[in-house]
Amino acid sequence: MQKHESSSSTTHVTHKDSGWRLFLRTVIARAYPRLIGQQREPSWLIFEVVMPIGTTIAYVLVYKALRAPEEYIGFVVMGGAMTAFWMNVLWSMASQLYWEKETGNLALYIIAPNPKMAVLLGMALGGMAATSLRALIVILIGSLLFDVTYRVTDFMQLFAVFLLTMVALYGMGMMLASAFLLFGREAWNLVSLAQEPIFLVSGFFFPLKALPFWVGIIASIVPVTLGMDAMRQLVFPSAFPFGFLDVRTEIAVLAGLAVVFLVSAKWLLDYVERLAVREGRLTESRR
């Protein structure tokens, strides 16, 4: 180990990446631990699947006890899968830089020449891919356990909705990551607070239309709200009467949200970086 370190320290660096190359390599480097590192801890996979599937099973059984129509079982299974994404955005995106601050890594992020936006993007892409696997397992288990059948009416629209939902959702996570850096100990509690209330207003376990219209509109700020509503309409044709808005409208809103969140993330990150330079207190851990 010592030999390796000494030989690497004497190696001359002949090439330094910059510009888009550095950006790309940073994205890959930050996505790597999410994609590969997390798979090296299989127990995480179990727990991260057990959590959403446990809630999903409980709510499905509530519907079964109430003798609800079959579509509702499918709604819950899909909601359970989307839970994995929302939890990932909250705990591994929004609060990630806060964790880095608490563990002492944030200062390294700030002084490194890598574009900070690329760091956030790497986090998002890695988290998105790793969570997609977990969400898929939740859907598979839920569908097999409760015999849920899907009939996709428009694959192109479904693909567009999923992609836009993910871009907007993780864009929101990137924006929140910067915003949460400005918080201290309350960051943990704020993230924790964004679970059940969002499950409620976003209609994770029931059709969004069951809520008052204006609650649905306000909840649409969270991209998963409209994304899930549109996907339900597209994979359960009998769910059209439960749809909150027309699928095309929801696609347009999701596209708008994606742009707004990504631009806001960049703006907030720049602001936080300026603050770090000016005050020199950003990496201070306030436990």
Binding site: L66, F199, L200, A210, L211
Partner: peptide, 15 residues
């Protein structure tokens, strides 16, 4: 707010 919203999810499902 957390437990209340948790209960509200069930109430809406039931309703």
């Amino acid at each position: 707010i957390k437990p209340i919203t948790g209960a509200a999810i069930l109430v809406i499902m039931y309703g």
